[in-house]
Design a protein around this nucleic acid. Structure first.
Lengths: 147, 147
DNA sequence: CAAGCACTTTACGTTAACGTCAACCTCGTC
DNA sequence: GACGAGGTTGACGTTAACGTAAAGTGCTTG
C-alpha cells in the first residue's frame, strides 16, 4: 500500500484548515486507491466537476467528499447513473422546485429499500458462510484424526 | 409481475414433497424473474449443472437453491467467478483435501470481511440519505409557506 | 538544455454479464 | 398436418466501467 494520505483524515503537515486544502488528481487517486483515469471518467459521467487552473484539474474538499460517496455507492452495487441521480439532485436542491424535490424523495426511498434488502441478504449470506465454515472445519478435524 | 410460483415457497398444488419437485428452465426463470438465457449462462459458467431429459434441462431443489444463492450473491456485488469459488468448493468439500479446505476457509473469511465493510457502508449511506431526505422536506415546507 | 515527472486529450481495447436473433426440435391439439 | 408454446444450440451485439497507448504541455532539477 502506497497510501501517503488517508482519505478521511488530513495529511501529515496540516497547518492548513482542511476546508481550503487542494488536491491534484494524482493525490486523490492515491488516497482512494483508484487510477486518475477513473476519476476523469467520473467527471465525464457528470459526477465530479473540479475547477481548472490552466489545463490542470484542481480538486477541493467538496470534490473529495463526492468521490468518497461515489465509491461507497459503487461498493454497494449502485451504478454511476444511480449515484449521479442522487448527487446531482442534492446539489440542485436549494433552488429545486417542488416536483423535483418530490422526485428526489422517491429516489431516496427507493435507495433505502435497496439497502434494507441488502441488509437481509447480508444476514442470510452470513449464515450460509457460517454453515460452510463449520462443515469445513469439521471435515478438517476428521482428516487430522485419521491421518 | 407474472409471478406464478414464489421462489421460496412451494407452488399452489403441492401434494408433492418439494424435495422431488422438478422445474423447467422457464419455470425457474419466472420464479426468480430472470430470463432463461441468464440461467443457461450460469450453467455455462459452471454455477449450475442440471440433469438432461433427452435434450431438455431438468432442475431440482438443489439447482433452485444454487440459483437463489447465486442471485443473492449478485445483489451483494459478488462476481459470478467469486460465487463459483464458494459454491463449487462447497460441493467438493466432503472429499476435499486439507489444502483445499484451508483455501476455502480463507475465501470465506474474505467474503465475510467484505460483508462487514458493506454493513458499515450501508450504515453510512443510510445517514446520508436521511440527511438529504430531511433537507429536501424542509425546503419543501418552505416552498409551501411562501406560495 | 535535456531529462523526468505529473498532468492533459483522444481514441481504441477489454471484460463481465447478459440480450437478441436465427434456425432447429418436439410436444399436445385443433 | 399445420401450428403454437415451449425447449435447444450457436453466434453475434450491447452496455458499463474502466484500461491502455499515443502524443502533447509545463515545471523543476541536475
Amino acid at each position: 500500500m502506497t497510501q501517503s494520505t488517508s482519505p478521511d483524515t488530513t495529511s501529515g503537515q496540516d497547518a492548513l484548515p482542511r476546508q481550503h486544502r487542494q488536491y491534484t488528481i494524482g493525490e486523490l487517486a492515491r488516497m482512494f486507491e483508484v487510477t486518475p483515469r477513473t476519476i476523469r471518467f467520473y467527471e465525464q459521467e457528470g459526477l465530479l466537476a473540479p475547477r481548472r487552473e490552466g489545463q490542470k484539474r484542481i480538486y477541493h474538499e467538496k470534490d473529495r467528499v463526492r468521490l468518497k460517496l461515489t465509491l461507497r455507492g459503487k461498493r454497494l452495487g449502485f451504478s454511476l447513473g444511480e449515484i449521479r441521480e442522487v448527487v446531482m439532485m442534492y446539489d440542485a436542491m436549494p433552488d429545486g422546485n417542488a416536483r423535483q424535490l418530490r422526485r428526489l424523495l422517491e429516489i431516496l426511498a427507493d435507495k433505502r429499500a435497496n439497502l434494507e434488502r441488502q441488509l437481509e441478504d447480508i444476514r442470510l449470506m452470513r449464515m450460509e458462510l457460517d454453515d460452510v465454515d463449520h462443515r469445513a472445519r469439521e471435515v478438517l478435524r476428521g482428516l487430522g484424526h485419521e491421518a
